[in-house]
Amino acid sequence: MPVGEWRSEWFRGGHLVLDFVNTVPWRLDAERAADRLPDAGALIGWCCAAGLFGEQRADELRAEAEAEAVPGRALVVAERARGLREELYGLLQPVAVGREPPAAELGRVRQAIADAITHAEIDTVVPLRWVVAVRGVEDVPRALALSAWELLQFEDLARLRQCQDRGCGWLFLDRSKNASRRWCSSADCGNRTRARRHHARHRDDSRPPPETSSGTSR
């Protein structure tokens, strides 16, 4: 998918890693769930749209992924990235709803972050900032894992939320002043949920009242 086709409304998480996790729309609705990262090309396009690297590097990575010598490697990279995404969701979703994350997910994410750190370089000293230089397609999952470390280390996860629409499942950081955000988008999932509840109330109001017992048995 070209960079320009990644819509701004698909980036609602408040952090690159949450937007990465949210590349599965309608995660809680089995009939509507989809995967926006089916291959290495889509992964590279998304990373560029998310700001992980620029368009020139994206073009270089696409050329590498499409080269005859490395199609299998590009496929493995895409699978690794999707695996990391699901591990991050398994770790972060329980936190978003006030539960402890599973130990297995903690272990898998820990391994991914440890691998990323071994390949990281110091970008700036004041403030101290580490980066994984994306020189090839195999560096993309590591760069995403390092961003996950930044999320877990520096963000207030008490503000991590899951959209309350029953089919959405997207995660986001609630940066509202009174921590009252309920949906990934009030204009999208919020309106849909309110309309559903309004319809349910009117449907219930239109039903005849239940018959009352006359006090006699059959």
Rank of each mutant, 00 (worst) to 15 (best):
P2C: 03
G13C: 06
G14K: 11
F20M: 03
T23Y: 06
V24S: 07
V24M: 08
V24G: 01
P25M: 06
W26R: 13
W26S: 14
R27S: 06
D29Y: 06
A30Y: 06
E31S: 13
A33V: 15
A34E: 14
D39M: 06
A42L: 00
A42C: 08
I44Q: 08
G51C: 07
G54C: 09
G54Q: 11
E55W: 06
E55H: 12
E55I: 08
D59A: 15
D59P: 00
A65G: 09
E68D: 13
A69C: 00
V70C: 04
A74F: 08
V76A: 14
A78D: 02
E79L: 13
R80G: 00
A81W: 04
R85Q: 07
E86S: 11
L88A: 04
Y89G: 03
G90K: 01
Q93L: 00
E105S: 13
R108T: 11
R110H: 14
A112W: 12
I113W: 08
A116W: 10
H119M: 10
H119V: 08
H119I: 02
I122C: 11
V125E: 13
V126L: 13
P127I: 09
L128R: 13
R129Q: 15
W130R: 13
V132K: 07
V134F: 07
R135T: 12
G136Q: 14
G136F: 00
V137P: 05
V140D: 04
R142V: 01
L144H: 05
L144T: 01
L144C: 03
S147H: 09
A148C: 11
W149R: 13
E150L: 02
L151M: 06
L152W: 06
Q153C: 06
Q153H: 13
Q153T: 11
F154C: 02
D156K: 08
D156A: 07
L157W: 03
A158M: 03
R159Y: 00
R166I: 11
G167K: 07
C168Y: 09
G169M: 12
G169H: 08
L171A: 07
F172Q: 03
F172G: 06
F172Y: 15
L173A: 01
D174W: 04
S176R: 09
S176W: 01
N178R: 13
N178Q: 10
A179D: 11
A179F: 11
R181E: 04
R181C: 03
S185F: 02
A187D: 14
R192S: 09
R196D: 14
R197S: 15
H199S: 13
P209K: 05
P209E: 11
E211T: 11
E211R: 14
